[in-house]
């Protein structure tokens, strides 16, 4: 049985909720721009999840002022902050490409409704 200790994993839960909200938006809305919005909400959830893994309570940001890492002080995980950048770049690129396709589609077909576009095809 699932036992969720919510307050211990609140950030992870928020990331998963954003992912599910975005997924539901993508699946239920017929408008293509709203589908792209849903995709972006899903990606935001994943970014929140990733940077939350890297965080730890009572740690400093990984920027060492002088003389390297100070003994006895801990820093947040820099690796997650560096790798989430890849995800953000991919998100921007896919959104831009999807939006340019949508602009072209609207010019050609005059609608962004998926149901109407399916009827137009034949």
């Amino acid at each position: 049985m699932i036992s969720l200790d919510l307050f211990l994993r609140l950030n992870y839960l928020a990331g998963i909720m954003l992912f599910l909200i975005g997924l539901h938006t993508m699946l239920t809305h017929a408008n293509l721009i709203k589908k792209v919005m849903g995709m972006n909400i899903m990606e935001t959830g994943i970014f929140l999840f990733m940077v939350s893994i890297g965080y730890a309570h009572g740690t400093l940001s990984p920027i060492m002022r002088r003389g390297g890492p100070v003994q006895g002080l801990t820093y947040t995980n820099p690796l997650l902050a560096a790798t989430v950048l890849t995800g953000i770049v991919i998100a921007v690129s896919t959104t831009a490409y999807a939006l340019s396709l949508i602009v072209k589609l609207y010019e050609q077909c005059g609608t962004l409704d998926v149901d109407r576009l399916e009827k137009l095809r034949s």
Partner: peptide
Amino acid sequence: LSEAPAFGRVDAPAR
């Protein structure tokens, strides 16, 4: 998520 380590622990597996 129910198996995941708690958020913000200094001894989390990712560290």
